[in-house]
């Protein structure tokens, strides 16, 4: 086996377009997934009980089976119920829905982790409900959930590779195709592995820095 990265580097424009697809799908799905997850968590906490049960079912079903199955259902099963999607929208929607379940659990734990006493203390000094939400609950929750959101975002970078199976032209698909064409598939996969590894390590490092900055606000979590 000879590692010949030179061959692969020649295809830079294709690789860059794959990198772009990976990055934007990842960022958009993370943001939309987190937003949807927050809504689910808030609805479960403040909505009526039947809504809570329904959303619990939604979350548990999504968390209880593989992303690949969900993606296949959407992409291959969708047309049978009139939902015909191109690979990229299918991938983006699938990843967002998948992420929303995990994000909602993070936020749910965040809601629960803010000590009751902090809210009671805010009520006693006369803050209104919306003030309590904006000034007390959300800032405290942010500190509690940030590390886990970073963690989830890192998991999602890795999940974007799965989108190649439904032919979304992201990094894994582009580099895999180049590798096959040039009979250098192993070399291509090495390059790809290193690319993801570096990306994940960078995100991990940024996340830890953000966490360190916030840690001075951290109250005594018992």
């Amino acid at each position: 086996m000879s590692l010949d990265f030179g061959l692969i580097i020649e295809q830079m424009p294709d690789i860059l377009s794959g990198l772009w697809v990976t990055l934007w799908i990842w960022v958009v799905a993370s943001i939309l997934g987190a937003a949807l997850g927050f809504l689910v968590a808030a609805a479960r906490r403040y909505g009526p009980a039947p809504l809570d049960w329904l959303l619990k079912l939604y979350v548990e079903i999504l968390r209880g089976n593989p992303f690949l199955i969900q993606l296949f259902l959407l992409y291959f099963g969708g047309p049978f119920i009139g939902l015909r999607l191109e690979p990229i929208p299918a991938g983006l929607i699938g990843l967002t829905i998948y992420a929303s379940a995990y994000f909602s659990e993070i936020f749910r734990a965040g809601f629960q982790a803010v000590p009751r006493g902090h809210v009671e203390a805010a009520q006693c000094v006369g803050l209104s409900r919306s003030q309590i939400l904006r000034r007390i609950l959300l800032p405290e929750m942010t500190m509690l959930v940030l590390p886990q959101c970073v963690n989830m975002a890192i998991i999602l970078i890795k999940e974007t590779a799965i989108l190649s199976i439904i032919t979304v032209p992201e990094m894994t698909m582009v580099i895999g195709a180049i590798g096959s064409q040039q009979y250098a598939f192993v070399d291509a996969m090495f390059l790809l592995a290193i690319f993801y590894w570096v990306l994940v390590e960078i995100c991990d490092w940024l996340g830890r820095r953000a966490e360190a900055k916030l840690s001075k606000f951290r109250f005594a979590v018992t």
Partner: peptide, 11 residues
Amino acid sequence: RGVPLLVQLLL
């Protein structure tokens, strides 16, 4: 932990 399982498997 840093490389997608799919890529590990293909590799």
